[in-house]
Amino acid sequence: MMNANTSVASSDTGARIKRGIIKFLEYAALILGSFVALLPIVSSFMTSFKSGDEYAATNAMTPPQNWFNFENYRQVWVEGDMLRAFLTSFGVVIVVVLVSVMMGSMLAYVLNRFAFPGNNLIRNLFMIATLIPGIAMQVTTYQIMRQLGLLNSIWGYMILMSGTDVISIYIFLQFFENLNVALDESAVLEGCTYFGVFFKILLPLTKPAIVTVAVLKGVGVYNEYYNANLYLQSNSWRTISTALYSFSGPFKSSYNIICAGVLLTLIPSLIIFLFFQKQVYAGLANGSVKG
């Protein structure tokens, strides 16, 4: 009896020690993971506060002497014409998000609520499009944009970006499937047109889907650089990505100034992330299931 009790107790402490070690290793792994994720950003952050001499003399991991030295930020903001780039980027984001939300929700409404010849064809066209890797077609897309005279045009870039976004259509389709048809029917009986049903009744109800699509698409467009570099090569329409890209010329060896530019571009993403974390995560989950 005694023996049995002590052996239970000792295996208990054994198990507790084992749990403790596992817990310790788990925290160590999480701290290491977060450290690795943040280190590249934090090192750029510290460098962005260093003066030119300080940058040349100190190690990359030495904290700056003065954390309030915003000279690099001022310089990159003025000489890099960043205000203009931010305004261009925000303009593109607003237009593209509006167009995508409207197109996605309208098409989803039509596909979900009406039976018509071609309904399935359109769904299949969108589904098959996800299988064709867009990246493989950038050569011929460029050719088409060239023929349409949309090279170096901010409108061309906006049209290309709002192009067909299958993920937002999926998110809206899913949403409409869960909206009761009785809503539409009673409105139609009261004399509402189909356009009225969509704009007055259904669209306001899709607000959660709109926020998800807007956040996902907004962040995506804000960070887009491949097409921006390809299609917006003139200096008058620089987005934040192309502006940043051009810094390697004038600020070539002054990494302290470039780091300030890099940090400035991160601020909008950080703000959106802090305020819309839930929508960012939800949007990702939606997007990934349909690939």
Partner: peptide, 9 residues
Amino acid sequence: FPFLVNGIA
């Protein structure tokens, strides 16, 4: 957060 960082950055 790294997922949200601009590619050029």
